[in-house]
């Protein structure tokens, strides 16, 4: 029998907004990796002494670095929000409603962010 096989385009993710959002969510991982590189550059500069740290600060103010970090921040936030939204569907705790799992994640996020900011800015 000659059934017709419906073709799948390599650009299937452009067909629907929800698919595009999925691909963007997956691409956020690239910016997570960029953050690791950026963090290690910072740590290395701090370890190299005050001069190197000043240089790093100056470099981080360059146009392209700023733009990259701005884009990366947007993607990292997309990652965080989508990650927390999906977490209650994987982590099912007996007798705890899903919304409570979600709230717990946001609470942990707020707490840790405040903690990190306090340690850095102290």
């Amino acid at each position: 029998m000659s059934a017709y096989r419906q073709p799948v385009s390599a650009f299937w993710w452009l067909r629907q907004w929800s698919y595009l959002l999925f691909v963007l969510r997956e691409l956020s991982s690239v910016f997570v990796a960029w953050f690791v590189v950026y963090l290690l550059l910072l740590v290395a500069a701090v370890g190299d002494g005050a001069r190197a740290y000043e240089d790093f600060l100056a470099w981080s103010g360059h146009g392209w670095v700023l733009v990259l970090n701005l884009v990366a921040t947007a993607f990292v936030l997309l990652h965080a929000v989508t990650w927390f939204a999906l977490a209650p569907r994987a982590i099912v705790v007996p007798r705890v409603p899903p919304w409570a799992v979600l709230v717990a994640h946001y609470a942990a996020w707020a707490l840790l962010s405040a903690g990190v900011a306090w340690v850095v800015l102290r």
Binding site: V32, F35, Y38, L39, L42, S60, V65, L66, N69, L70, A72, T73, V76, L77, H79, A80, W83, F84, A87, A108, W109, L112, S113, V116, A117, V120, L121
Partner: peptide, 16 residues
């Protein structure tokens, strides 16, 4: 999980 919890604050501080 680690990235969602810790990366935004660090990136906003040191990157922006």
């Amino acid at each position: 999980m680690a990235a969602a919890l810790l990366v935004p604050v660090l990136l906003v501080l040191f990157g922006l």
